[in-house]
Nucleic acid binder design. Structure first.
Lengths: 390, 390
DNA sequence: TGCTAAAATGAAACCAGTTTCATAGGGTGC
DNA sequence: GCACCCTATGAAACTGGTTTCATTTTAGCA
């Protein structure tokens, strides 16, 4: 072979090597340099001339090595000498080379991408309203970025346009499910993914038989702790505010914790339940107004999530009940707004940062067949003003 | 050629056609059927046996056509007869075939993916706190899904890990920038993308010289309308609450609208400015407390965004000032929480649904070189309780 | 210095589609 | 009956990397 050119002045034209094989052109495909040939195939793009992007063959030529060596060097493969690695890196920098991820993914059968699928009740659109999910979204993004994975995001708008074949079409290596509402409908579909050996994790209560895939907070324990705190502050008529239908098993677990704590203290269960599947400020507001007229006096409210608790505080204020003097309030989630309500909201914190980390970590473990260790996030009580106990 | 099999019972094994070309195997690569051959190459995966996924060659064989015809039929290419299309579709369904997007992207030089790059001040993390951006995120996701595009999402955590080469490495066809804070630092980098002919759009005020790429609300007009409304309700001492440093040019525009409206009515400018680059409830809360002590009585507050306005309401309540009786409050954005504050917040609505649509629409226009039409979203005043004028 | 194992490299196959190009077949106009 | 065109199709090139396999270099050691 001709002695490799270490530095190729821009525009230099090398005579093509004679092609000994007439049937199939050399892999370099004619273009032996990424610089545009004057006057050829150069329709002006939206801005300036569109130059052919450099390929690993161009890097190889410039660095004086073979293309396979370029590939190895750029991936920091073990079998490359330091000297070669340097030369390749420099050539790549010089030509502003970027790998074509599609070619890479195609051959390596790996995408380095995770897909985040946000499901939601099409009517209430809860996942988009509740800041808790934004927080999860953010931590998942960061966790996957930290591990060098890209994140595809998709909202399930209806149960029909089911984009679980993100994995089947090799767009992503694994799936993360996250959302609120219509849980059962999704769980059913999600669970079936295992059959087609698609790696996935879900934020939500464990479904029997699929231990590794379901990751969530310890909702029972969290709620128990919050209600115990209210009891310890002397509250005796504590209402639970939330929807415990099958739509949202998290809320059901929190209700269980609430009932357990009351049971320990021999206090009555007071339910501010409602049929609405949503869990917004508005719903909490309404529910507490209904409760006040119906159940007699209360001295505390435990909200199944912060938005409900905040709505309750607004409703209480409307009825001239003071928080926390007349009615103490505790929420669940610790959304970013919780410290800024008035009074600041006491709540059970879900550690979204840890949750995002765990989801991504466990998904990656599933992807390459390593065993999964934890699937539960511990919660913590954050005491602020709304429970009267700072 | 052998007569094509119209229907191939599962498990049927056809003798391989004699390979006339010894140097290079037929494109079908030996496997003439995706069904696993018993006992061969079948290490058990995490669950069950891992079967080779069907390729377009498998579909071709089952449907009795060539592989290129399969490709055309599945893409609804014009040059396929209805009969063929049906047969191919059926075969694909039967084998549960999904295209490999990496192969498709590689050859077609198109990814059908957009990348959403959320930039933010690394300290304040505003983009993740402000529900407005969640709303934008949601509408952008929906807009791109509606057009059949996937969405990659990435948070710029520092100005260093600049992932603008999402396009360069062919991960995405175009980029959407969105965020709050550190605007100038990003605009500088973003603007340079044009030089490498990367398609992009940005949510933010227009930068001179790059008209098509910058899309935003008419902030001046919106603020003017809000302040005019306060004036029409008889308010005379109206404070502006927000950071008008170069970090956030949107806020500066809103300040301009505020000053203009006051000028029309001959009223004094009262600034509740602050140095903090953040724009949270907390900051609004603090800023209004500082203002009250300093500037004498006010009868209205115009917040540069809803979070600031909500913080202001909390601060006013703390000082026993009634909203709207003593001080009227108007915000900007119309975040989802705005109707549920107490009193409900009057605000300038940014139409995030339209904004997401426009961003995606214009980006797609840039991608395939069509001209761009609009780059501005109109705002609208939403009157609720906090301005005393429902 | 010679022998052997390990490290480094190059050539070519390979991933699974899309696109180009050539061609067969059917209908139409004259 | 023949030239012509248009539709439908197949064969093969092509996309740009990674991976396998064979070969060359280098290093270590007696």
């Amino acid at each position: 072979m001709v002695d490799p050119l270490r530095v190729l002045p821009p525009g230099t034209i090398r005579p093509d090597l004679m092609d000994p094989e007439p049937r199939r052109a050399l892999r370099g495909r004619g273009t032996d340099c990424y610089h545009p040939r004057p006057g050829e195939h150069q329709e002006a793009g939206s801005k300036g001339m569109r130059v052919k992007r450099p390929t690993s063959f161009d890097i190889a030529e410039l660095a004086g090595v073979s293309q396979s060596t370029v590939s190895r060097a750029l991936r920091n493969d073990a079998m490359v000498s330091e000297d070669t690695r340097q030369r390749v890196a420099q050539a790549a920098r010089l030509l502003n080379y970027k790998v074509d991820v599609n070619a890479r993914n195609l051959r390596s059968q790996k995408t380095n991408t995770l897909a985040l699928l946000l499901y939601e009740d099409p009517v209430t659109s809860q996942s988009l309203i509740n800041p808790f999910f934004l927080s999860m979204l953010s931590s998942i993004t960061k966790a996957s970025a930290r591990r060098g994975y890209d994140l595809l995001i998709s909202f399930q708008q209806s149960s029909d346009d089911w984009s679980a074949d993100y994995a089947a079409s090799k767009r992503a290596d694994g799936l993360i499910f996250l959302g609120y509402g219509d849980y059962l409908r999704y769980v059913d579909k999600i669970s079936r993914l295992d059959e087609v050996s698609t790696a996935f994790v879900t934020w939500g209560p464990v479904v029997p038989g699929q231990p590794g895939h379901f990751i969530g907070s310890d909702n029972i324990q969290g709620a128990r702790e919050g209600v115990r705190h209210l009891i310890a502050r002397g509250r005796k008529r504590i209402a639970f505010l939330g929807d415990i239908s099958e739509h949202c098993p998290e809320f059901r677990d929190r209700y269980t914790g609430y009932v357990e704590a009351l049971g320990e203290a021999g206090l009555p269960v007071i339910e501010a339940l409602y049929a609405d599947a949503a869990a917004s400020e508005e719903v909490g507001h309404q529910a507490i107004l209904n409760l006040i007229g119906r159940e007699g006096p209360i001295d505390a409210v435990f909200g199944a999530c912060d938005l409900l608790a905040i709505g309750a505080m607004n409703g209480l204020r409307e009825r001239s009940l003071r928080v926390p003097e007349d009615v103490a309030v505790v929420g669940f989630d610790d959304i970013v707004a919780a410290p800024f309500t008035s009074p600041p909201l006491t709540t059970i914190r879900q550690d979204t940062a840890a949750a995002g980390e765990l989801l991504v970590e466990n998904l990656l473990r599933l992807i390459d067949g390593r065993p999964i260790e934890t699937t539960q996030i511990t919660t913590s009580l954050v005491v602020r003003g709304s429970c009267g106990g700072a």
